[in-house]
């Protein structure tokens, strides 16, 4: 880097008229400002929420009534009861698409340029976006749980266990949000992100025990299913909601024996990779 040649003077850094927050707390403070901005959008365009909430209801009803009779999980638990945790898992994972779509939209509209020209934390836009999407997921879980209760799903373990189950679903969805955040910053438009997430998330949720029992898969597919984190998430939720029959032992694989732990390992791994990756991508966006 060359020093500007002599000529007129350069000023000393001009003093700032205000004091800026600093340190890691700034990512949270700024992130909350961005999250509030995203949540205002829900207030202004409530139509978004209608569809966010209708599709999980539709999923619960479709699977319960269309496949309800055809698939027998086989361990004494009815299919509807078996199914609900799978639908929870699938829906919250799909919810991450919002994160990617929101960021792709912000990129396209130039808001990201505005944010990037401000002295804010480079993680704030991503922290804000992933945080506001937790709100979407909480709402859709509540709606799905109510619909599930209507069609015969029951929480058979303690209330606290059930809360842990919901917590695990949200934490996993949060991690997937960061993956989608990265994709949202890389792809050129909202249309692409919707298709991209479909391509990633459909196999992830269908090649799992979310809709069909693990026992019905063979060979390589079975290996994939039992190590798929969505399977572990679903298995852990079923355990915590008490939607597995007491007599049936969990499949004899570490991931299925310790599904909650295995899920959390994935959560940690995803965050460790995708938080720095996304923040770096954000910092050089458009460059």
């Amino acid at each position: 880097m060359s020093t500007p040649s002599a000529g007129s003077d350069l000023p000393a850094p001009t003093p700032l008229p205000y004091r800026r927050p600093s340190g890691p707390g700034r990512a949270l403070v700024d992130g909350w400002v961005v999250a509030k901005r995203n949540l205002i959008k829900i207030k202004r365009v409530p139509e978004i929420l209608v569809f966010v909430l209708i599709s999980p209801i539709m999923f619960v009803l479709l699977f319960a009534f269309v496949f309800g009779g055809a698939i027998d999980p086989g361990d004494g638990v009815g299919y509807r009861e078996f199914l609900i945790a799978g639908i929870f898992a699938q829906t919250v994972v799909f919810g991450a698409t919002f994160t990617g779509a929101g960021l792709a939209d912000d990129m396209a509209k130039g808001i990201i340029d505005r944010f990037r020209s401000l002295p804010m934390s480079p993680a704030a836009v991503l922290v804000g976006r992933t945080t506001s999407d937790v709100v979407y997921n909480v709402l859709s879980l509540v709606i799905m749980a109510l619909t599930g209760l209507l069609v015969g799903w029951r929480i058979r373990e303690g209330f606290l266990d059930a809360l842990l189950g919901f917590g695990l679903l949200l934490v996993f969805a949060y991690a997937i949000s960061w993956v989608m955040a990265y994709i949202g910053l890389v792809v050129p438009s909202v249309e692409v992100i919707n298709n991209a997430s479909f391509v990633v998330i459909m196999p992830l949720t269908f090649v799992s025990n979310a809709f069909v029992p693990l026992e019905s898969f063979d060979g390589v597919l079975r290996q994939l299913v039992q190590w798929n984190p969505v399977s572990a998430l679903t298995q852990a939720s079923r355990d915590l909601f008490g939607n597995v029959s007491a007599s049936a032992a969990a499949p004899d694989v570490w991931s299925m024996q310790h599904p909650a732990l295995y899920t959390l390992v994935w959560v940690l791994g995803i965050l460790l990779v995708f938080v720095p990756l996304s923040v770096r991508q954000y910092s050089r966006a458009g460059g």
């Binding site: 700032l16 927050p21 400002v33 205002i40 130039g110 505005r114 401000l118 002295p119």
Partner: peptide
């Protein structure tokens, strides 16, 4: 922290009110 940028297309959030837009920018400046 020492510049203000206004781009060639207006980078305001269309769902936020004018007041909310400016308030958000103020918060992000600190």
């Amino acid at each position: 922290a020492r510049i203000g940028l206004s781009g060639q297309y207006a980078a305001v959030d269309e769902h936020l009110t004018g007041l909310e837009n400016l308030e958000m920018v103020g918060r992000l400046y600190g």
